[in-house]
Design a protein around this nucleic acid. Structure first.
Lengths: 146, 146
DNA sequence: GAAAACCCTGGAGCCACTCCAGTGTCAATG
DNA sequence: CATTGACACTGGAGTGGCTCCAGGGTTTTC
């Protein structure tokens, strides 16, 4: 099949597929005479694996490692378990941070219940004060809210 | 004060401060004879406001809007309230998505309790199957876990 | 007066895509 | 057989919010 069909079948974007190939997440595709990429079922499986991992919010580097294990079935999978444990830890941490954040935002929101002049808006005032709550000091592994 | 002291006092990085100036979040700083930026207390306040908003995971565009309100005290603050409500909504949504994700990851982790050959690893097998759970179809406003 | 600490600019790099312009290929019509 | 339209190709730029760097200049301290 060609890249468009592959994209549909794996719920990906054609640009994403080409990108994965370029950075070596996926092997170089075979080409037709007219220089179109064409793919077989094994490729579909591999791409689905990748997309599933991405849906679980793993980085491409993590996925690269998992793919190596997939490709060497005689290796032992302790590292796979470790990777997943670490990843779960990141997610858990991020949930806690966001929950804290949500609490602070709701507190802030309560400071301005009615429409008034910005001069007197409790929210703007709240944002100007030096609250330290939920202040992530270092770059967090699990990203922000945008 | 110079940029280094400002950075310490606002818990920012000097590069970040220069970056904010460049993209117009902060006004152009005054310069000394030797071409060093120098700042007064109002600038400290403004930067603290920005850092506080960032700690609350707002985008720089959102912050730009809030700064405009800060600068026009006679305007009414309905938009500030709306911005915050929307932001809270994003955070709440993201928490729900991550919680779902965590559940799926823990389920996946249970599939491989002991170290074995990758061939038989339940995690790799689980990642290869076409589970749809937690599949974010569209770009999420609140970002991922990395 | 020399060394260390600080500051300057412009530009590249990060992640994981996403979008684009300009061009080429191919299957189905007129 | 020519045209149209859908699809594909490449290389490069853009996203957000920084972060880091090279190669220089300035200021402070000993």
């Amino acid at each position: 099949m060609r890249i468009g069909e592959l994209a549909v079948r794996t719920d990906s974007d054609v640009d994403t597929i080409r990108y994965y190939e370029k950075i070596g997440i996926l092997p170089k595709a075979a080409r037709t005479e007219g220089n179109y990429r064409h793919y077989g079922e094994a490729y579909v499986e591999r791409l689905r694996f990748v997309r599933h991992c991405r849906a679980l919010d793993m980085t491409l580097d993590e996925i690269r490692l998992l793919l190596r294990f997939r490709d060497t079935p005689e290796a032992d999978c302790a590292e796979v378990n470790a990777l997943l444990d670490e990843h779960i830890g990141h997610v858990t941490t991020r949930i806690a941070a966001l929950t804290e954040l949500e609490k602070e935002l709701r507190g802030l929101r309560r400071k301005c219940r009615r429409v008034q002049q910005a001069r007197d808006c409790g929210i703007l005032a709240g944002l100007a004060t030096d609250s330290q709550a939920g202040r992530p000091r270092k770059k967090q592994h699990i990203a922000g809210t945008h």
